[in-house]
Design a protein around this nucleic acid. Structure first.
Lengths: 201, 201
DNA sequence: GTCTATAACTTGATAGAC
DNA sequence: GTCTATCAAGTTATAGAC
């Protein structure tokens, strides 16, 4: 089974739609556009899918559940909070690399969902953020993390890894291992080099 | 002159358009929408502006020039590179707070520009990034910055401050001074607290 | 400058033949 | 399941009266 050529048309539509939504944005992407890319007429799409928004919803909720599953795995880890945060950063980095297209749509286009799906999606986001916030707060209490505003810390971390797809090209020069190492180092220890001012050792 | 009420209609249209583009995204925002908000019929808008895209272009290029002007000021500073980077972070933070709406549209909606404006805009972006990259490289050479991949450092810094508007509310609890202090500290020195393991002083 | 009317087009989605 | 034909609604923008 040469998986790249034929296989399931429905699957092909979903994948091509994600690419299209990513390239043009949800609203600028038309069903005629999409149909052409899967070599169908626009009306034929509706034998496979229910509506344009159904495609967007599937992409958004699949990714939301993926991140929540990752969060559950991290919460179950028996380690300190700093390691849990590192694990979450890696979850974001790896997903951004392995599922670039769909995670981009998830990140950028979810707001074009309409109610009641929009509300449900926002609840899932909030749930994820709350559980991330809990780990940060625990880390602050144990003294693993610097004393600073929890919200600033939470969202600065998220921002750093949530928008990777805007510049990182998996096929480019930077390898995944280097990306993971440097981002984690930078966020945990900062960009400034330790000043060898009062060195003793 | 009660600046909030009457004044210039053209100015009002631009400001309201920025709000609308931010709320709905450029494509989902209609000229009828916009007209209603400035209490005109859609056709009357065209006595003040040339086209929908002209509004988007103005927002995008105004902001691009603002950031490039800020970059020029920083380049002219007679300080080390770490301080220049701090100054650029503050430029982003302050702009995000003071010009939330327009900087959001600038950040999120520029890709809906059409050629040749799109190409020109991308050149301005690249120029800004190149000049930022130069400061980082200088800082790496002098040993002010940790040794890590320059691209990762550049874009992680930019990501952290470019997407502030997604969570920071100027009218919320966190004050601007705290935001500036914590973000700069976090990026320069990381989130992990110095371990008091081998303390000597 | 603002309006009504409308041109010219694109949108998501459906009906029904094959 | 795919097609042609089409609908109803929405889009930006213009023409021309006032």
């Amino acid at each position: 089974m040469q998986d790249s050529e034929k296989k399931n048309k429905k699957e092909e539509i979903y994948q091509e739609a994600a690419k299209l939504f990513r390239q043009k944005g949800y609203n600028a992407a038309s069903m005629r556009d999409l149909a052409e890319r899967v070599q169908l007429k626009a009306s034929s799409l509706y034998s496979h899918i229910g509506s344009k928004e159904e495609i967007l919803a599937k992409i958004c909720f699949d990714n939301a559940h993926h991140f929540i599953a990752g969060m559950e795995a991290v919460e179950a880890m028996k380690t300190d909070n700093a390691k849990k945060i590192k694990a979450l950063l890696l979850l974001h980095i790896r997903t951004a690399i392995e599922e670039t297209t769909s995670v981009t749509v998830f990140n950028d286009e979810w707001r074009h969902l309409s109610e009641p799906q929009l509300g449900e999606f926002i609840l899932l986001r909030k749930d994820y953020e709350n559980r991330f916030r809990k780990i940060i707060k625990d880390g602050e209490e144990t003294g693993e993390l610097k004393k600073m505003n929890t919200e600033i810390l939470l969202y600065s971390l998220l921002n750093s890894v949530q928008w990777l797809h805007y510049w990182y090209k998996p096929e480019g020069k930077i390898k995944q291992a280097e990306l993971e190492k440097d981002i984690v180092m930078m966020l945990m220890e900062g960009i400034a080099s330790r000043k060898p001012k009062n060195r003793k050792d």
